[in-house]
Nucleic acid binder design. Structure first.
Lengths: 344, 344
DNA sequence: CTGAAAGCGCTTACAG
DNA sequence: CTGAAAGCGCTTACAG
């Protein structure tokens, strides 16, 4: 237990007190605080000194009421405990923190109605802007919101005033993953898709097909099963795949969580990874590096995604035009993939 | 993509407009909203009708400035992407949501100074109360804060006015885990402890020792290594344990993440789990059920912890005395533990 | 039971 | 460059 200084009574001094102490008007203090106008050096010094002496910290609540700026940005994530988006939230937190902004996290649970409710709530709390991490809101709704306040959204590609989007190339990622498998010599590659309502799911499925095609392998719908992006569903999907008696030497899941569930299903049927079946995931969750065997996957830069979304929001807030490049997908080859055994 | 209704322009109508529309004073509307005084049925109806017609939603920012209540509670978690605390955050979210409160999540990063900064920030944002998820703040600091606003903290046992604490019995959990292993017949049980600065770490170590003692097994410090509660450190600790050439048939880690890392270390040395070494974790993360083999562990009710903390805060806010019982620890026996093989 | 008034702590036209 | 004043949208004594 580290020792802590006695909590200072925050919010004890007000802008008015600073003004009086410095012998200037409240307006002047406000201007200095906000860099809203040029102020004589002498007064500025007096004010800075008074601020330091009184330990003054502006009250964001009052600021929000008076000026419309609360120095907070709303973040609609889908589930506060998502292993993937959690990392993105950290990126947002770090980026915002650097300039004194605070994030307000709310969960939309992949439900457009709930997401809309979240946004209404955030707006009633007067956030300066809103970041939406993927989700199910329509593009039209997003554009509509952007008329009222700056918006940044991930998982889509949209152009509209006051709206910026960041999109990871899921198609390319899945194509690369499939390519990794085909270049290892796999011909029969099963795929566990995500639920089709999820925007990323289709792109990854298309990438898988493109990867097969590039290697001259025909797409076989019987080698595809669907899951819900979590472990349990991955396990179930793998079992279904196994039950079809379709032969496959590799299995590619649309995300790591499903890949991990699939590994367990394989293990239960006494199939070894990668000797009997190579398994490939997508996202590169931090746990995937410690699964047994460590999971080969596609790195999805969650932290940079969050950071970039926050940086873009800050740009929008300053009235600038954001431009941000998300790192592209890249294959992380670990031990769950190998060349198919010669005698399957 | 689900279709969404066009976002309604929230915050468009004010309390003043409602008052005018209903032909009453602003005070009366405010009283009805807050149930602050008895109001004649006739006016109440007129106001309710006006509120509905105008789609009025009170502005929490103004409310916070004027009344001091923002209907928000600050939550100091340690890392926004912690797999364990993430679940607790969900519990907090759900519980608060039921009564229209919003959580404000901030990360203290297991650093007393940062946690104190978080609390200052939350107070400047005028949250109605603060929940601290474990962390490193001193008990004295917590009590001090509680003089200014309601506080709820987890991971300790404290009594003070306006402060409520929820504590999970880590000692008992670790004792039970060790008991599970000894009752399986293990005699040489290694332990991967957490870093001693972490409050839970010591309790779990003590529980381990108590479990050994209950089975009449002498404590052997050479069978203990320390980690940092994450996978990597668990892997390293297991390697160190193996390098000592001390024999052990079971390994108990102070949390699941370290247990998972340890499993990988064992696997790299060609030791099978559970045939060669049984492995036991602590926390029961959702992924642990899908590790290979599925990890035996101690269930730690994270969701209930968060929910209980939020419920306690709501009590405090209502001026009531909270009383909440957290479920006790229980062993979840899965496939990573088994009786020691006869010929080790 | 109900209003008028003051005020929460700031910002921002409006005038110098 | 700088003040005085009004106002953001609510709440809460203070008087009826």
């Amino acid at each position: 237990m580290v020792k802590t200084s006695i909590p200072k009574t925050t919010g004890t001094s007000t802008l008015g007190m600073v003004a009086k102490a410095a012998g200037v008007s409240a307006s002047t203090v406000s201007r200095i605080l906000n860099g809203t106008a040029v102020v004589s050096e002498a007064k500025k010094q007096a004010v800075d000194e008074a601020i330091a002496r009184l330990g003054f910290v502006p009250n964001p609540v009052a600021r929000g009421l008076a000026g419309g700026r609360t120095l907070s940005v709303g973040v609609v994530t889908q589930s506060i405990d998502s292993p993937f988006y959690g990392v993105a939230l950290r990126g947002i937190e770090d980026e915002l923190d650097r300039v004194g902004y605070s994030p307000l996290f709310v969960s939309g649970h992949w439900n457009a109605t709930e997401e809309a409710r979240c946004i209404d709530m955030l707006r009633s709390r007067r956030v300066d802007g809103i970041i939406v991490l993927t989700g199910r809101l329509s593009d039209a709704a997003l554009k509509q919101y952007a008329k009222a306040l700056p918006m940044v959204a991930t998982g889509r590609r949209l152009k509209a005033p006051n709206l910026y989007t960041l999109d990871f190339n899921n198609f390319e990622g899945a194509r690369l993953a499939t390519g990794h498998l085909t270049s290892l010599g796999h011909q029969r590659i099963a795929f566990i898709a995500g639920n089709s309502e999820h925007p990323d799911a289709n792109e990854r499925l298309c990438g898988y097909r493109a990867g097969l095609e590039a290697a001259g392998i025909a797409f076989n719908p019987e080698l595809v099963a669907s899951g819900l992006f979590h472990e349990e569903s991955g396990m179930l999907a793998a079992e279904r795949l196994l039950d079809t008696r379709q032969r496959f030497t590799a299995l590619f899941a649309a995300n790591d969580q499903m890949a991990l569930g699939a590994c367990l299903a394989l293990q239960r049927r006494s199939l070894r990874v990668p000797q009997d079946v190579s398994v490939m995931g997508f996202d590169d969750l931090s746990i995937s590096r410690y699964s047994i065997p460590p999971l080969s996957t596609v790195h999805h830069p969650a932290y940079e995604l969050g950071q970039g979304a926050a940086a873009a929001m800050l740009c929008l807030l300053r009235g600038e035009k954001p431009s941000f490049n998300l790192p592209g997908p890249r294959v992380i080859a670990r031990e769950s993939t190998a060349a198919p055994s010669t005698r399957p």
